[in-house]
């Protein structure tokens, strides 16, 4: 439907600012679909302005300690759902161990928005083009969510996305953190995206990681949800040849179903997916 009114202000809502996770989960439990959590607001406020969502209550989750956690332990990286990307990027281990994620974050939206935007928000929106989805898969991320009704549960990132702007999150559930195991030595990862100019949403995003045991690929903006592939069984002798690539491409091609939109045609998306896959495989394997 064509928009016939263009709103300038935001619709009416109340604001709640819980100081603990418990308090936040209570609020979510009470308001269910009538509320929305606010972290960076870079997607939320835009959707509000366009009246794509009209919650009665906005729950600001930035005062909750669990959601502000940013920690690298010998086993694991934990990124609280409300940590701004610019802060995540200050952690030196991101670049060393999680190269694909680092590359995605460093080129996500822009320098100013990165001071507000969060990884939690990026996946919660569940856009098919969510830049972090591919890297999170290649780093085998697990999302910790909590709710009053179901308590805590862990969702593997490849089970998180359910459709265009649909995730596995129940209305009363809140993303607490995103957790990634420390990769084994010699793991290489990379992220690349294609866009029309310096500032654009990705028309295709591709990420990959590779080590002795596993090779993972993740793609965005090529299907209603991000597309994840474990191609470990296709990588023979740790080498990539045209033949090996063709067998990998067959798998990818069967899983992607890109659309034509303002950013790109379906055909170009397929072509770019192929080129980025080649470049990434070369980067992480050869």
């Amino acid at each position: 439907m064509t928009e016939t009114i263009s709103y300038v202000g935001l619709p009416k809502f109340e604001i709640e600012v819980p100081n603990s996770l418990e308090e936040a989960l209570n609020l979510l439990h009470i308001h269910q679909t009538n509320c929305k959590p606010l972290a960076g607001g870079t997607d939320l406020l835009v959707d509000l302005r366009h009246r794509l969502i009209q919650p009665n209550v906005i729950i600001d989750v930035k005062n909750i300690p669990e959601l502000k956690k940013l920690e690298f332990t010998p086993n694991e990286l934990t990124i609280g759902a409300a940590v701004p990307i610019s802060e995540v990027l200050t952690l030196s281990q991101i670049k060393t161990y999680y190269t694909a994620l680092y590359q995605a974050l460093n080129d996500m939206c822009d320098e100013i928005l990165r001071n507000r935007a969060t990884i939690g928000g990026n996946i919660a929106t569940a856009s098919p083009a969510a830049d972090t989805a591919g890297p999170l898969y290649t780093h085998q991320a697990v999302v910790e969510v909590q709710s009053k009704s179901k308590g805590s549960r862990l969702i593997a990132i490849d089970k998180f996305f359910k459709g265009v702007k649909k995730s596995d999150l129940a209305p009363d559930e809140l993303i607490v953190s995103i957790n990634m195991p420390k990769p084994t030595i010699n793991t290489k990862s990379a992220f690349m995206k294609m866009k029309r100019g310096a500032e654009d949403l990705a028309l295709v995003g591709a990420a990959g990681s590779h080590n002795q045991e596993h090779t993972y690929l993740g793609f965005t903006a090529v299907a209603p949800t991000p597309v994840f592939l474990d191609i470990s069984n296709l990588i023979i002798e740790k080498k990539i040849s045209e033949n090996v690539f063709q067998s990998i491409w067959k798998e990818i091609d069967s899983k992607i179903s890109p659309i034509t939109d303002v950013r790109s045609s379906r055909d170009y998306r397929i072509h770019i997916t192929e080129i980025l896959t080649r470049l990434i495989l070369k980067e992480i394997i050869l």
């Binding site: 604001i15 600012v17 606010l38 960076g40 607001g41 870079t42 406020l45 835009v46 906005i58 600001d60 610019s86 822009d110 320098e111 100013i112 928005l113 001071n115 507000r116």
Partner: peptide, 20 residues
């Protein structure tokens, strides 16, 4: 980006920040 201001010394786009 025209509504950029410094909030606690950090640039943010003020159209995407609630006043409270």
């Amino acid at each position: 980006g025209l509504c950029t201001i410094l909030l606690e010394g950090v640039p943010i786009k003020s159209c995407l920040v609630l006043a409270y």
